[in-house]
């Protein structure tokens, strides 16, 4: 796996806006950015209302994913290029989700919406419609998705990477610093977790760092490439970004994203919690 297999540059994207078989998809938690102006021809996916189950705390199921992609006009053999705001957090989440349901040809736009805007590339507010398809998803590939029991079993056994900010890791904050802090769960982190904030994998313009820089970052932090790894954050989207760096860019073989993340773990009764800067 090389960078070119999983990422496209903004230059490439602009040159391929009208290329048949390439579908640009903007993924955000708040789609008002898309509505105000998006990459020409891109369709939108609303992370909150379209990728999450409306009642239970879980994803849309396989049939729901098929219905969603069919409605967006995405076919099984399309090359899907995902991008979004927040340094591609939700686009990376969607990328992981596409992989979870077995879509092979999916890539991220390196730098996402931020790089596109900082470059001054074109945006369009025109409505985009694509002809409905009949999309067929596979069963979830749980080789890349971790659940809470295996996270508890991974303490002191696997690499646990907490990708939140240091203040969230230590328990000082319960959410990223641009959000209000009133939350139900306890503060802290999973014992034995190593704190490598997701942002260390990204440049200021939102692009991913080079493979050499990433390898050095994670090995210096104490992540053992020979061991299985579980990444988590607060709700699983920042850890999708790190999952992408470890599994897709660096090619570490066994990396899972724990999408339950701290909002689940920090609310569990009877599990160990560590506070402070950690042992690293």
């Amino acid at each position: 796996m090389s960078r070119e297999d999983v990422l496209v540059t903004a230059e490439w994207a602009e040159e391929n806006l009208g290329t048949a078989g390439v579908v640009f998809v903007e993924v955000d938690e708040d789609t008002s950015a898309y509505d105000g102006g998006h990459i020409p021809g891109a369709v939108k996916i609303d992370w909150r209302t379209e990728l999450q189950d409306p009642v239970r705390r879980d994803f849309v199921d396989r049939a729901g994913f098929e219905k969603l992609l069919s409605g967006k006009g995405i076919a099984n053999d399309d090359r899907v290029v995902l991008y979004g705001g927040n340094n591609n957090w939700f686009a990376a989440y969607a990328y992981w989700y596409f992989k979870l349901y077995g879509h092979d040809k999916v890539q991220l736009l390196d730098g996402g919406r931020k790089k596109w805007e900082l470059d001054g590339r074109p945006l369009s507010a025109d409505a985009v419609t694509r002809e409905e398809t009949s999309y067929s998803a596979k069963e979830q590939d749980t080789a890349i998705r971790a659940f809470r029991d295996e996270v508890v079993e991974a303490i002191n056994a696997k690499n646990l990477v907490d990708v939140r900010s240091p203040d969230e890791f230590s328990g000082k904050l319960l959410a990223p610093a641009h959000l209000p802090q009133e939350q139900a769960q306890r503060g802290g982190h999973i014992p034995s977790a190593i704190n490598v904030p997701w942002s260390k994998a990204a440049n200021e313009d939102g692009t991913f760092k080079s493979a050499d820089e990433l390898r050095e970052l994670y090995s210096d932090a104490g992540i053992d490439e020979g061991k299985a790894t579980i990444a988590y954050c607060r709700i699983g989207e920042r850890s999708s970004h790190t999952w992408f760096a470890l599994h897709e860019l660096l090619g570490y073989s066994d990396v899972k994203n724990y999408d339950g993340s701290w909002t689940e773990y920090g609310s569990l009764v009877g599990v160990p919690v560590e506070t402070g800067p950690g042992t690293q």
Partner: peptide
Amino acid sequence: VTSDGCGAPE
């Protein structure tokens, strides 16, 4: 204010 998500609020 988005409190259950991580995206940037207005």
